[in-house]
Nucleic acid binder design. Structure first.
Lengths: 205, 205
DNA sequence: ACCTGAACACCGTTCAAGT
DNA sequence: ACCTGAACACCGTTCAAGT
C-alpha cells in the first residue's frame, strides 16, 4: 500500500544514497513499484516532496532542554543542526531555499528563545539569529564542497598540484598546507561560533 | 562565428535573465543559432561552462588597493563579493561548489593577504579566512532565499499569514515583524562581519 | 578544424481514462 | 478514492558523419 510516509521515506533513502539529483519521481516510482503518476496522489509536486524531506531532516535535530543556559543552547542547536545536515549532505544546498516545515520552525523558535534569554537589545537578538544561522549554513556548504572535492580525488589532485606548482598565489599555497595538516577539524566550526557568541554577549544590555 | 567568449557571454545573459536552470545547452544553441553539439568544441562540458561563468562573476569584483589597511581590505572584499553575487543571483548556490578559476583565486589570495597583514597567529588567520568567506556565503544565500520568497509573493503571503495566525511560534512571529519594518538592510551584513573582524583582532599577537 | 543530426537515456507534469 | 499509460515538452551527451 502506498502512503505519504512510505514515499517520503523511500525518497529520503534515494537522496541519501545518490544525492537529490538522482531522487527523481520516476526512480521513486520504480523503487515503489507503482506508476509515476500514482505518487501525485500523495504529494502535490516534486517541490512539495522535497519540502517534506527537508523537514524530516530537521526532525532529527533534538532541541536542547528548556532550562539550558542560552549560550549552551545556541551551541547545541548549531552543532546538532550541522550534524543533521552533514548526515544528509544533499539537504545543504536547498535547506535555506525551502520554506520551513513544522520541525524546522520549532528549531528556529528554540534558537530565538535562547537569544531572548541572553538579555540582548531586541534588534541585536534578531541580527544575532541570522549571524548564527548564516554561519551554520556557510560552514555546512564549505564542508560539503570540501567533501565533493575529496570524492573526486583524481580530478582534484591535478588541480591542487597546478596551484601548488605555480607561484601566482603564494598565500593560497600556505592555506592549502594548513588544510593538509589539519587536526582542528571540529574546532573550526566552534571557532567562528564563539566569535559570534562572544560578540553578541558584548552587546548585552 | 562561434567563439568560447561568445558562448560564455550568451550563457551569462541566459543565466542572469532566467536562472541557471534555464541555461541549458539546447537553449544556448538556439540562442546562438548553431547545433547543440557545436558548443562542445569550445567547452568540454556543461560543468566546464559553468566554471567559466562563475569565474566571470568573480572577475567583476575589484580587489582593494595593495596599501589598504587589512581590516578595510577585508570589508571591501566582502562587500564587493557579496554585491557581485547578488548581481548574478544564480551564482550563489553554486559559488562554493565550483573549483575556483583564476579570478576567484586572485580574490582568495587578496583576502589571505589582508589577513596576513593583521598580525594574527597563522592558524587564526586561516580560521578567520573561512569565518569571513562562510559569512559572505551564508548571508548571500539567506538574501537569495528572501528574494525568492518575495518573488512568489502570493504563495508566501499565505504561508506567512498561517504562521502569524497560529500561536505555536511566538518568537518567530516577533522575528517576522522585525523583518517587516526592517530599515537596517545594509547593516545586517556589516553587523556580523564586524563581529568576526572584532573577534579576530582580539586574537592579534 | 569545425560543425551537425540522430539517437540514447533521462527529466517533471498534464491529461484522459480506467477501477 | 486511488491508480495509470501515453503524451508533451524538456534535459546532457555519445556517436558517426559530414565539410
Amino acid at each position: 500500500m502506498l502512503t505519504r510516509e512510505l514515499i517520503v521515506e523511500t525518497a529520503m533513502q534515494l537522496a541519501d544514497a545518490d544525492g537529490i539529483d538522482k531522487m527523481s519521481m520516476r526512480r521513486l516510482a520504480t523503487e515503489l513499484d507503482c506508476g509515476v503518476m500514482s505518487l501525485y496522489h500523495y504529494v502535490a509536486d516534486k517541490d512539495a516532496l522535497i519540502e517534506a524531506l527537508v523537514d524530516q531532516v530537521a526532525s532529527e535535530v533534538a532541541p536542547p532542554a528548556a532550562d539550558t543556559p542560552w549560550r549552551e543552547a545556541a551551541q547545541e542547536l548549531a552543532a546538532a543542526t550541522l550534524a543533521a545536515q552533514l548526515n544528509h549532505p544533499w539537504v545543504i544546498s536547498i535547506w535555506s531555499m525551502t520554506w520551513p516545515g513544522p520541525h524546522r520552525f520549532a528549531l528556529i523558535e528554540r534558537l530565538l528563545e535562547a537569544l531572548a534569554q541572553a538579555d540582548l537589545p531586541a534588534d541585536i537578538a534578531d541580527l544575532g539569529f541570522h549571524a548564527l544561522t548564516n554561519h551554520i549554513q556557510g560552514f555546512a556548504q564549505q564542508r560539503l564542497a570540501f567533501g565533493q572535492l575529496e570524492a573526486q580525488a583524481d580530478e582534484t589532485a591535478g588541480r591542487v598540484a597546478a596551484i601548488m606548482g605555480s607561484d601566482e598565489f603564494p598565500r593560497v599555497i600556505d592555506h592549502i598546507a594548513f588544510h593538509q595538516h589539519d587536526e582542528t577539524d571540529r574546532d573550526e566550526f566552534r571557532f567562528t561560533l564563539d566569535l559570534i557568541l562572544d560578540g553578541l554577549e558584548r552587546h548585552a544590555s
